[in-house]
Design a protein around this nucleic acid. Structure first.
Lengths: 234, 234
DNA sequence: GAGTGGTCTAGACCACAAT
DNA sequence: TTGTGGTCTAGACCACTCG
């Protein structure tokens, strides 16, 4: 079998929303109508529609129907799309400078954060990120070598997330971030060409692939940058 | 019928995880075993297990089984649970001081953010939030009077999110936040009893109920506070 | 080969909202 | 009363993983 039918129905409805055939507040065809149109049972249709609910496209009400939610918010719903995509979406030209690329051994903290044994080998990647030729963030990323045996310096120039998904074939599933405001120190001012004591967003993030393994733990220092977040309830 | 069976199964497994009968990495009983234990069909069990996947408790692999994920990350998965719940979960005693409670008219910015006509009446709520008797954030909230005709000052002492969900019966669906680091100014230092020029998290948030309407737009200034975020892909 | 989860059928009864 | 989505049955065949 190729693509499962529920996926086909899912994409069909997504397409209707994207092409504006269905707008915010519109009712999508009922389960019965869709099951007749695609000649499948209601259960198959329900599986498609429940996925659309999960992804924030529609909401459903018993006795009423399935309603299209506002698309604006849901456009970039991938809250962990990664920095590169996020900035490109805002119209900036994004590039990375690779500052350091090492293999280190997991200490106690990294072993906890990455959920691997102490002493395991880890890629340590230090990068400065540029938007339109201005340095705006410094990022230190740790990734288990076990998961990425073939990572090299070239991959670090582009989007690491794209490498993880497109080339390695992992599906990025969930991330935990903590966000703090701090004041820059001399080291950071040096790296990012800042004035003294600038306000900085300090973000620590652990990111998992679908099977639950942590594939990345990172520290990021953002200057003059607004983090945009879309959160879905529950 | 009372609680649906799939919910019962869901809670059963959650309980096993919470009591540590099932630990991270453990396999939960197979669909077949659960369907025999609860005397239901596999479809019913699947509905329960798929919800557990959605909520981040387990991951599933064809040919292998359903595996318990690390609970740490997934505990407070409701990324817009609101500040009160978020801090209580961390063990702080939380309270609010109502600083100001007004009716104002929507200017151009607020009309855009709340998606209502210019001139519409809005509640303007200014609060200081305390954790264990220390002032840690200042919050200015705007809510359309149209949606909350009966809001009063008492509701602002507790959790506004709880008021919106429990008393008004709205279901909070999605929020969009932007997060920045700033340096405190004199006004903020005064309000929050800060030293001069402290690093502050400045968060603007628009929050929607299920039908897509914006019910809240707010500015929050957090001091000494780490924002925790769980993001789910797509 | 045995066991797992993934997809799907062809029905059923129910709770809820709108008219 | 009609139409919607919510729950559930008792099967089926399939794709995948592992020993």
């Amino acid at each position: 079998m190729g693509e499962p039918i529920y996926k086909i129905i899912e994409n069909h409805v997504k397409e209707l929303i994207k092409t504006n055939d269905l707008k915010q507040g519109d009712m999508i065809p009922s389960e019965k109508q869709l099951s007749e149109e695609f000649e499948v049972t209601r259960m198959t249709v329900r599986s498609a529609l429940n996925n659309l609910v999960k992804e924030g496209y529609i909401t459903r009400r018993r006795g009423v129907g399935s309603i299209v939610l506002g698309s604006k918010i849901y456009d970039n719903i991938s809250a962990i799309s990664g920095f590169t995509k996020e900035m490109q979406n805002k119209g900036y030209e994004v590039s990375n400078i690779l500052v350091d690329f090492n293999i280190i051994e997991a200490d106690e903290e990294l072993s906890k954060k990455l959920n691997i044994p102490i002493g395991d080998n880890i890629w340590e990647i230090k990068r400065v990120r540029m938007a339109d030729k201005i340095k705006i963030s410094y990022m230190v990323t740790y990734m288990p070598i076990k998961l990425f045996p073939n990572l090299n310096q070239k991959h670090c120039i582009g989007s690491l997330y794209e490498y993880v998904e497109s080339i390695c074939g992992y599906k990025i599933a969930i991330s935990e971030r903590s966000v703090e405001a701090i004041i820059s120190d001399v080291e950071l001012e040096d790296i990012l060409d800042l004035n003294k004591k600038e306000p900085i967003l300090y973000i620590r993030q652990a990111c998992r692939i679908e099977n639950g393994e942590v594939f990345e733990y990172s520290h990021t220092y953002h200057y003059g940058y607004t983090l945009t977040l879309n959160a879905v309830a529950k």
